Simulated scan of single mutants.
Amino acid sequence: MTKTGNAAIDAEMPTPIQSLGDLEQFWQQTLDWIGSHYLSIAIACASGALIIALLYGLRMLGTRLCRREHLGHWSRIIGRAIARTNIFFIVMLAARLVSGYATPPAVVAGTIGFLFTVATAVQAALWVRELIIGIVEHRAGEEDGVSSSTLGSAIGIIRLLVTAVCFIVATLLILDNIGVNITGLVASLGIGGIAIGLAAQGIFSDLFASLAIIFDKPFRRGDTVKWDQTTGTVESIGLKTTRLRSTAGEEVVISNTNLLNKELHNLAHTLRRRATLMLSVTYQTPPDVCRRIPEMVKAIVTAHDKAVFLHCCMVNFAPSSLDYELLFDVLDEDGEVFNSARHDICIAILETFAKEGIEFAYPTQTTFTAAPDGRMIMPYPEPAGPSDKPSRKAATPPA
Score class of each variant (00 low, 15 high):
residue 23 L to Y: 13
residue 92 M to N: 03
residue 168 I to K: 03
residue 229 Q to V: 14
residue 57 G to A: 10
residue 249 G to K: 02
residue 358 I to G: 07
residue 122 V to P: 04
residue 294 P to A: 00
residue 327 L to S: 06
residue 164 A to N: 11
residue 104 P to E: 05
residue 175 L to N: 03
residue 222 G to M: 05
residue 294 P to M: 02
residue 251 E to L: 13
residue 7 A to E: 15
residue 328 F to S: 00
residue 146 V to R: 04
residue 344 D to W: 00
residue 284 Q to T: 15
residue 154 A to K: 00
residue 275 A to K: 00
residue 207 L to W: 15
residue 274 R to H: 14
residue 169 V to A: 14
residue 237 I to Y: 01
residue 43 I to E: 09
residue 239 L to N: 10
residue 10 D to T: 07
residue 257 T to P: 01
residue 29 Q to K: 06
residue 253 V to I: 15
residue 303 A to P: 11
residue 363 P to C: 01
residue 296 M to Q: 12
residue 188 S to F: 14
residue 386 P to K: 08
residue 305 D to Q: 13
residue 282 T to Q: 15
residue 343 H to A: 10
residue 127 W to P: 02
residue 55 L to W: 06
residue 109 A to S: 13
residue 238 G to D: 05
residue 249 G to P: 05
residue 177 N to T: 11
residue 367 T to V: 14
residue 139 R to F: 09
residue 40 S to A: 13
residue 316 N to D: 14
residue 237 I to E: 01
residue 285 T to M: 01
residue 167 F to Y: 15
residue 271 L to I: 12
residue 160 L to V: 13
residue 201 Q to E: 12
residue 195 A to Q: 07
residue 115 L to T: 10
residue 172 L to I: 14
residue 297 V to K: 02
residue 199 A to R: 12
residue 371 A to I: 07
residue 72 G to M: 11
residue 23 L to M: 12
residue 293 I to P: 00
residue 319 P to L: 04
residue 374 G to M: 13
residue 32 D to T: 07
residue 242 T to V: 14
residue 221 R to C: 08
residue 349 I to W: 03
residue 110 G to S: 00
residue 269 H to C: 05
residue 147 S to A: 09
residue 235 E to S: 04
residue 106 A to S: 15
residue 247 T to R: 11
residue 256 N to L: 02
residue 157 I to T: 00
residue 207 L to P: 06
residue 87 I to W: 07
residue 113 G to H: 09
residue 328 F to T: 00
residue 147 S to G: 15
residue 361 A to W: 06
residue 62 G to P: 06
residue 307 A to K: 01
residue 327 L to H: 14
residue 242 T to W: 06
residue 6 N to L: 13
residue 40 S to I: 08
residue 312 C to E: 04
residue 384 A to Q: 15
residue 305 D to S: 13
residue 380 Y to A: 08
residue 104 P to L: 05
residue 392 R to H: 09
residue 212 A to D: 12
residue 61 L to T: 09
residue 111 T to M: 15
residue 239 L to W: 05
residue 263 E to R: 12
residue 208 F to G: 02
residue 206 D to R: 10
residue 276 T to M: 08
residue 283 Y to K: 13
residue 104 P to K: 06
residue 199 A to T: 12
residue 380 Y to C: 06
residue 251 E to V: 11
residue 110 G to R: 01
residue 390 P to E: 14
residue 210 S to Y: 02
residue 164 A to E: 10
residue 136 V to E: 01
residue 381 P to A: 11
residue 224 T to K: 01
residue 217 K to C: 04
residue 265 H to K: 13
residue 109 A to L: 15
residue 329 D to P: 00
residue 141 G to E: 10
residue 282 T to A: 05
residue 348 A to G: 06
residue 368 F to L: 12
residue 1 M to R: 09
